[in-house]
């Protein structure tokens, strides 16, 4: 029986880098997993902005997405650290605090929805590592890659580790392993776990500050010989890709792990959505 997940798209992947969405659909189909669309799902809602403005709204909109998945009988799989951060935290809060769950359900009742607390929130990279696993994945690599790349884990994939238990928050390894299963080499570089700078509403409110973070990461990646940046978050992806227009001296293509797997599994490059990238990607 094919295992299935509710595919949570979020905003940035489908609306800015659709190649990430396309590659995820293709890769999971190839692996024999069913991705179910969450009909009418909205923004996660964004942890850096909506949660900063009003926690009650953040909880209610997040609960609506959890309720849609629950109604469709699937757990949620995200392709974005931000969506993962928000939905995971909303689920945790509502599963732990019955008073909050009750309050949120009073709001959801207005739109004919109810959340009972049964949706688990997963990140696709962790699903690939834990549910799919090395053997199935390696068996599908038709086009082994020979690239030197810099992994960017981002923040909300593994942190807060007290709740997520995915990997060591200071010295994680699962993204490096996932990259190396394609044949590519995942490099070590200085301050590898540092934030890209875009989270917490900083990119929109203070892009100069966000770009200072990114510039430091780009410097460290270049010094280590990284030819590509591999991320697991469309928002980090957007920050690395678009900031290179303003941060002079870099030309490092930015690729989401799903796109890297799409390439390794033999997807036509035309379906990876590379024309949406600011920094040209010439695999």
């Amino acid at each position: 029986m094919a295992q299935k997940y509710g595919f949570f798209l979020g905003c940035i992947a489908p609306l800015r880098y659709p190649g990430i969405e396309k590659a995820t659909r293709t890769v999971f189909k190839e692996l024999g997993y069913e991705l179910v669309d969450l009909e009418g799902a909205g923004c996660c809602p964004a942890p850096g902005v909506v949660r900063s403005f009003d926690e009650a709204t953040w909880l209610a909109l997040g609960a609506r997405n959890l309720a849609i998945a629950e109604k469709q009988g699937v757990d949620i799989m995200t392709i974005c650290n931000g969506c993962y951060g928000s939905l995971f935290d909303v689920a945790h809060m509502l599963h732990e605090d019955k008073a909050k769950l009750k309050h949120v359900n009073e709001i959801l009742a207005e739109v004919g929805l109810h959340y009972s607390g049964n949706t688990q929130v997963r990140h696709f990279a962790e699903v690939m590592y834990n549910d799919v696993g090395i053997e199935k994945i390696k068996a599908k690599v038709k086009n082994p890659l020979t690239l030197d790349v810099a992994a960017h884990y981002g923040c909300h994939f593994t942190r807060p580790s007290k709740l997520k238990h995915i990997d060591d928050p200071e010295r994680p390894h699962i993204l490096d392993e996932l990259i190396e299963w394609t044949g590519a080499k995942s490099l070590n570089y200085k301050d590898k776990q540092m934030c890209c700078g875009s989270g917490g509403g900083v990119r929109s409110r203070n892009s100069a500050l966000a770009n200072e973070f990114t510039a430091e990461k780009l410097k460290n990646i270049k010094a280590a010989g990284g030819k590509y940046i591999i991320d697991v978050c469309p928002f980090c992806h957007l920050q690395f890709d678009r900031s290179q227009k303003d941060i002079k001296g870099y030309d490092i293509p930015v690729v989401h792990l799903a796109q890297l797997y799409g390439l390794a599994f033999g997807m036509p490059k035309s379906e990876l959505g590379l024309e949406a990238h600011e920094v040209k990607v010439n695999f």
């Binding site: 900063s52 580790s161 934030c195 917490g200």
Partner: peptide, 12 residues
């Protein structure tokens, strides 16, 4: 107050 990127380094 708005310069935190919510990276959780401090929390960890």
């Amino acid at each position: 107050l708005w310069m935190c990127t919510t990276c959780y380094s401090c929390v960890e």
